[in-house]
Amino acid sequence: MTGVARLTATADLEHGTVEYRFDQRGGSTVVMLHGGHMHAGLALGEQTFADAGYSVLVPSRPGYGRTPLATGTTTSGFADVTRALCDHLGITRVAAAVGVSAGGPTAMATAVRHPDLVERVILQSAVGPLPWPDTPTRLAARLAFAPATEHLTWSAVRAIIRTTPGLGLRMLLGDLTTLPARRVLTALTAEDRQTLLELFSRMRSGQGFRNDLAAIRDRVGRVTQPTLIIASRNDGSVPFTHAEALASTVQHSNLVESAADSHFIWLSRDWPAISNKIRDFLAG
């Protein structure tokens, strides 16, 4: 896992402009659809695919980075944008659509709408078919990430991280775990702490997160591809019930329970074993 910024490009498609990063390694490609506050310039949870030799395509979802909100606002709309981006780059088949957190519904929509493109689906701490988030979180997020306040919110976050990093991490982890944040922070390695500090210092919400909250996850049918679902019961952002609901509705699915202390399953002590499961899953 790494939060180091990466170079991105934009493509002007029939559906609109989309920002993306395409890390080519000569092998098959996976498409990563990241969650809230993320854009194509940030890498999260991609190392497993890179180590296995996969090329990784990461588009910024609507309202994030340099992808305008008008470019495929709904999950189905951006699924079509993802297909068009693959066509633009000459990608005719992807080994998996990987949906992380709020990017989960778009990964599923891409698989349903374009089965000739997507071989498999991997869902990591992903939002499922249940209501999300809860009402208090939704109301607070609408205030904190409104157009007039989003920049101020992230400026405050960066100031706290810069001056009192430990306090900043505890505050941010508090919304991402069901466990005491101090306990979660204590269990992190120095390297993991630095990774989170770099990640949080580069996150932005733009108009994307409010769109995630407001967007109706349109019904697109059932995923028929083999699907790997990975989630933790300690996730304070996307409850484990979402993973259970996904496993019950996706016919060819396998639910892997992570021992992670928070939403960040990549920081768990069992992540190396889960990475092996991902590689085995991709190998069929």
Rank of each mutant, 00 (worst) to 15 (best):
S76N: 11
L255E: 07
S101T: 02
A52E: 04
D192K: 07
G53H: 05
A214C: 12
R233K: 12
L117H: 08
G63N: 09
T17K: 09
V121P: 02
Q124F: 08
A231N: 10
A187S: 14
D87Y: 00
L167G: 00
S253N: 13
R120M: 08
D212H: 09
A107N: 05
V58S: 14
D80V: 04
I278V: 14
T106K: 03
S205E: 09
G63V: 08
R162N: 14
A146S: 14
E191V: 14
T177L: 02
W154K: 01
D51S: 07
T2R: 13
V238S: 05
I230M: 12
G27Y: 04
S268W: 06
Y64K: 00
L57F: 08
M32C: 11
A190E: 15
I265P: 01
A259Q: 15
T110Y: 00
Q47G: 10
A11C: 11
W266N: 13
S28K: 12
A102D: 08
A214P: 02
T74G: 02
V58R: 13
M38D: 10
I229Y: 04
L152P: 03
I265N: 05
E19S: 12
P133I: 07
A140H: 08
R170L: 08
V118M: 04
A109I: 02
C86K: 01
L282N: 01
A50F: 13
E244L: 05
R222E: 06
K277C: 13
I160A: 06
R6E: 14
P115Y: 06
L282Q: 00
G166V: 04
D134L: 06
A111D: 06
V157L: 10
M171S: 10
M108Q: 14
H15D: 15
W271P: 03
L57E: 04
H114D: 07
G104P: 09
L7M: 12
